[in-house]
């Protein structure tokens, strides 16, 4: 700073963007992918413009919302909430042993740990709606199929996240407790569990929120709740009622979102 800066022009230029053949190739490929995507999905401004009046028309039909329909939404809302609660509680209990079997540092043996990982991957590999679709075929319409679908997906996700949390545990306290003569399970309970617990609780809360949202959507495939009310009213062109259901649904999701945020702040 004292002697006055010496500009190294070569270094400055090297830092600037340079068109290399590789970059050129990547850009060409990107443009190609976009072009085929736009063609492939039949996207066109024209179609959007011609479709736009239809969207506006739909919106007009949705207003004003049918307020009288409100009182008949009470029970579906409760059912959606119940689906969210029971699936989260059951999934978070089932995910616990799965996570410990899937975590490299506490799993008894690779023979256990690999299949459990694979199982968790499959559980979360398919989204809960597809699971619900399958279970509706197997066990019939109703919330039961939805609950099972949410549980399966949720075990997959919480199990994986928790396994990662267990793997990230600081080994120092575990060593100290072993050195003090604590047995394996005591070391785990006092050394590892306090480190994992806050993460576990926050995942459970997050997925409670998530499951309640998904419970709405599961109504589309016949798993009950507000989602079904919405689906039914749209497919039968009762748009004012659909709008009412939509409003209730958004409110419900916002309230739960806030509540979860509040609880999570209490934990951490």
């Amino acid at each position: 700073m004292s002697n006055g800066p010496v500009l190294n022009e070569a270094a400055l230029r090297a830092g600037a963007f340079k068109m290399t053949p590789l970059r050129m190739g990547v850009m060409l490929i990107a443009v190609g992918v976009y072009w085929t995507s736009i063609k492939g999905t039949e996207m066109s401004i024209q179609e959007f413009v011609t479709g736009f009046p239809a969207i506006v028309d739909l919106l007009r039909q949705m207003f004003p919302p049918d307020w009288a329909y409100l009182k008949r939404l009470g029970w579906p809302v409760i059912e959606t909430l119940q689906i969210g609660i029971i699936s989260t509680v059951v999934a978070s209990i089932l995910a616990l042993p799965m996570a410990f079997l899937a975590a490299k540092n506490v799993s008894p043996h690779p023979i256990v740990y690999l299949p459990v990982r694979l199982f968790l991957t499959v559980c979360r590999g398919v989204s809960e709606i597809i699971w619900a679709l399958l279970f509706v075929v197997a066990v019939g319409l109703g919330p039961f199929a939805g609950v099972i679908a949410l549980i399966i997906y949720c075990v997959g996700v919480i199990g994986k996240l928790l396994a990662e949390a267990v793997e990230a545990v600081d080994p120092g306290p575990l060593e100290a407790m072993s050195a003090a003569g604590a047995s394996r399970w005591k070391v785990f309970l006092y050394g590892a569990w306090p480190q994992v617990l806050p993460l576990y609780l926050s995942y459970c809360l997050y997925y409670w929120d998530h499951n309640t949202r998904q419970a709405v959507v599961l109504g589309f495939v016949g798993a009950g709740g507000v989602g079904y009310a919405l689906f039914f009213n749209i497919s039968t062109y009762y748009f004012e009622k659909a709008m009412m259901a939509m409003i209730v649904l958004v409110l419900m999701i916002v309230v739960i979102d806030r509540f979860c945020l509040y609880l999570r702040q209490k934990i951490i």
Binding site: G172, P173, E175, A176, A179, G181, G191, P194
Partner: peptide
């Protein structure tokens, strides 16, 4: 062995406390 360890104290460079307790 666990009982024997109970009478051998150990301290560490990084203290090895459980932070959240």
């Amino acid at each position: 062995l666990l009982q024997a360890r109970h009478h051998i104290g150990m301290i560490f460079q990084e203290f090895n406390l459980v932070n959240r307790m």
